[in-house]
Simulated assay, not measured.
Amino acid sequence: MGRDTRRSRLVIAALLIAAFTLITLDYKTGRSATGARGVVHSALGGVEDGVSAVFRPIGHTVSSLAHPNRYHDRADRLAQENARLRRDLADDKMITQTGKELADLRLLANKGQYTMVPARVIAIGDVTGTDWTVTINAGKDDGIATDKTVLNADGLVGTVASVTAHTAVVRLVCDPNSRIGARLERTQLLGAVAGGQGPSTLVFTVYDASFRVQKGDRLTTFGSLDYVAGVPIGEVTKVTDVGGLSRTAEVRPYVSVGTLDLVGVVVGRPTVDPGDRLLSPQPAPPEPTAPAPAPEATLVPDAAASPGATTQGATGTSGTPGATGTQGGAG
């Protein structure tokens, strides 16, 4: 009995070894069973299929361990494709934004009859509070010279401080060393706008101290030999006095220097001062509301003065003479 059990175990072990060998050959070669292998396959097909179902996942795992770069390469390809798609989307968005900025800049140039060279901000200078400048990618070869006016679709950016062949440094309007002539829209009073109060606040000083500045007044450049007229600067937010000798005001600039990108350098001034054409239209003031008419008074006639009331009181309910006297006599 023990001998038969040992023999059975040896036979089963031999069959398992043969089946595993066939599975390995099939996995390595990938060819169909022929010849002697076909005969063995037909005899041990059931055992081979059962063992194959058990050991096939192990074979895939061993293969993945033997070729680890296969999956890393695929992940790298997917990451590269994702990055390329993101770049394409970013490029499309940038192209759309640049097109809009160019269109707005062209519209401003047409209104003011300016000849402008478009440029992009490529570097920011020292913005520690003592020097506010940016560098643009246009220079002498593009017709740009020092002291030229720089603007964007919102208004005045600054003036050109220095140039090279292909670049220029622009002194921003908020720079402490900047001082630009300005004109009030409402009264046409002249003055000067200076920086030094930070990127979001300018100081406007009226030349004639006998005139007052009001909150909400808007400013444009009045033009000189260095810069052109009519460029929007900003709006008065607060009125102050300095020693009673001049009228000054704080001004919020229209241009946000923290988001500068596309700008235009005016290289040709208009033949006629554009005035206030470049300022956006002011909203119409609300129409005054007419007072509501007073309600009509209702006149109530005096009962004592009413003939009908007298007759009714005299005649009683029946309306016949003497009825009231009869009732009173009966009482």
Rank of each mutant, 00 (worst) to 15 (best):
I122W: 06
L278R: 06
S318G: 07
D217V: 05
S306H: 03
V169G: 03
I233V: 13
L25D: 04
V267N: 03
E287T: 11
Q312W: 09
H67A: 07
V39P: 00
K100D: 11
H166A: 14
M1P: 08
L65R: 09
V251D: 05
R120F: 09
V51Y: 11
I17Q: 09
T320K: 15
S200F: 01
G268I: 10
E250M: 02
V127K: 09
G258V: 03
D73Y: 03
L108E: 03
T34C: 01
I58E: 02
E185T: 08
S200T: 14
G139V: 07
V39M: 12
G230F: 06
G216C: 08
G325C: 03
A103E: 14
D92E: 10
A305Q: 14
T21S: 15
G244E: 11
Q188Y: 06
P301G: 04
S200C: 01
A90H: 05
T311R: 11
R7A: 15
Q113P: 00
A292V: 11
G268L: 05
T289S: 11
V121G: 01
G59D: 04
D141R: 13
A309Q: 12
P118A: 05
K100M: 12
R252T: 13
K100V: 13
E81K: 12
V236Y: 06
D241I: 08
P281T: 12
S64L: 11
A290D: 05
G216L: 09
D26Y: 08
V117M: 04
E101K: 11
G2E: 12
E287Q: 15
P57G: 00
R7S: 13
D73Q: 08
V206C: 02
T221H: 02
W132M: 12
A209T: 09
G99W: 01
V170I: 15
F204Q: 04
G158A: 08
A103V: 06
G46C: 04
V173L: 07
Y227P: 00
G35W: 08
D175P: 09
G322T: 12
Y71Q: 12
I136D: 03
V206K: 02
G328T: 15
T310R: 15
V203G: 01
D241R: 11
L105N: 02
T311P: 00
P281M: 08
T259L: 05
R37A: 04
S64I: 05
D92I: 04
G244Q: 11
D73C: 01
D142T: 07
V62H: 02
G313N: 10
D241Q: 13
E81M: 11
A119F: 04
T326G: 06
E287Y: 09
G196M: 02
I95V: 14
K28L: 14
D88M: 10
T205H: 02
V134Q: 07
L15E: 13
R87Y: 06
P285S: 03
T115G: 14
S256H: 07
D73E: 10
S32C: 02
Y114V: 04
T146K: 06
G59V: 12
G38Y: 12
G331H: 10
